[in-house]
Simulated scan of single mutants.
Amino acid sequence: MREYLIFPMIALLVGACIPVQASMNAVLSKSWGNVFYPTLILFSVALLCIAIVVVAKGIRPPDYSAVIGVPPYGYIAGVILLCNILLITYLAPRMGMGNAIFYVVTGQIVAAVLIDHFAVFGAIKVQLSWQRISGIMLMVLGIALARH
């Protein structure tokens, strides 16, 4: 029962952090005149933080067989993350934080529904229904209205 309350709250918090992070990246981008060094700094800080956590918790690296057993698309996620950070850092100061995030969220909704429907990347299969399609359309309509 607790998960039904805590998990959505955590997801909302994570979602709220995305435009905050994008705003901070945009500040660095404007100051430094490019998106590449701010992104490098962001990933360097993230690497340092996770390295500290791994060492502090004594987490052992996975076995070699586990590393090579991952489907190749599992590692492409890092490239997607890099592109996401670079592009939101580039777009936010040019089109406004709200507009950039509205488009990102719309893309996330459409992609998430397709991933669920086709159960790709090991996702749990969630069939499209008229209720789900209607809800998605209302979300996208709300995003479109809020954009203006």
Rank of each mutant, 00 (worst) to 15 (best):
Met1Cys: 08
Met1Ser: 11
Arg2Tyr: 11
Arg2Pro: 11
Tyr4Ala: 11
Leu5Val: 09
Leu5Trp: 12
Leu5Gly: 06
Leu5Ser: 09
Ile6Glu: 11
Phe7Gly: 01
Phe7Tyr: 10
Phe7Asp: 05
Phe7Cys: 09
Pro8Glu: 09
Met9Asp: 10
Met9Tyr: 01
Met9Gln: 09
Ala11Met: 13
Leu12Arg: 10
Leu13Ile: 13
Leu13His: 06
Val14Lys: 03
Val14Met: 01
Gly15Ser: 10
Cys17Ile: 14
Cys17Leu: 15
Ile18Lys: 03
Pro19Cys: 08
Pro19Trp: 04
Val20Ala: 13
Val20Asp: 12
Val20Glu: 15
Gln21Asn: 14
Ser23Leu: 11
Ser23Gln: 04
Asn25Trp: 08
Asn25Met: 07
Asn25Asp: 04
Gly33Val: 02
Val35Asn: 15
Phe36Met: 15
Pro38Thr: 13
Ile41Glu: 05
Ile41Asp: 06
Ile41Thr: 12
Phe43Asn: 04
Ser44Val: 14
Val45Met: 14
Ala46Ser: 15
Leu47Val: 15
Leu47Ser: 11
Leu48Met: 15
Leu48Gly: 08
Cys49Lys: 13
Ile50Arg: 05
Ile50Gln: 12
Ala51Phe: 12
Ala51Leu: 13
Ile52Gly: 07
Ala56Asn: 10
Ala56Cys: 14
Ala56Arg: 15
Gly58Thr: 13
Gly58Glu: 10
Gly58Phe: 01
Ile59Thr: 09
Ile59Ala: 01
Asp63Gln: 15
Ser65Trp: 05
Ser65Ile: 14
Ser65Asn: 13
Ser65Asp: 12
Ser65Pro: 06
Ala66Lys: 07
Ala66Leu: 13
Ile68Asp: 06
Val70Tyr: 06
Pro71Arg: 14
Pro71Gly: 11
Pro71Phe: 01
Pro71His: 10
Tyr75Gln: 04
Tyr75Ile: 02
Ala77Gly: 14
Leu81Lys: 12
Leu82Gln: 03
Cys83Pro: 03
Cys83Lys: 08
Leu86Ala: 04
Leu86Met: 10
Leu87Val: 14
Thr89Phe: 03
Thr89His: 04
Thr89Arg: 01
Tyr90Thr: 07
Leu91Ile: 10
Ala92Arg: 03
Arg94Ser: 10
Met95Trp: 03
Gly96Tyr: 04
Met97Thr: 12
Met97Ile: 09
Gly98Asp: 01
Gly98Pro: 00
Ala100Ser: 11
Ile101Arg: 00
Tyr103Thr: 09
Val104Ala: 08
Val105Met: 07
Gly107His: 06
Val110Cys: 03
Ala111Pro: 00
Ala112Tyr: 03
Ala112Gly: 14
Ala112Thr: 12
Val113Pro: 00
Leu114Trp: 12
Ile115Leu: 09
Asp116Leu: 03
Asp116Met: 06
Asp116Ile: 03
Asp116Pro: 00
His117Cys: 03
Phe118Met: 04
Val120Ile: 10
Val120His: 01
Ala123Asn: 09
Ile124His: 07
Ile124Ala: 07
Lys125Tyr: 07
Leu128His: 01
Trp130Pro: 06
Arg132Pro: 02
Ile133Pro: 01
Ile133Met: 04
Ile136Ala: 09
Ile136Gly: 00
Ile136Leu: 03
Ile136Pro: 00
Met137Val: 13
Met137Phe: 11
Leu138Phe: 09
Met139Ala: 10
Val140Ala: 00
Val140Gly: 02
Ile143Cys: 10
Leu145Trp: 04
Ala146Ser: 05
Ala146Leu: 07
Arg147Gln: 05
His148Tyr: 08
His148Val: 09
His148Ala: 08
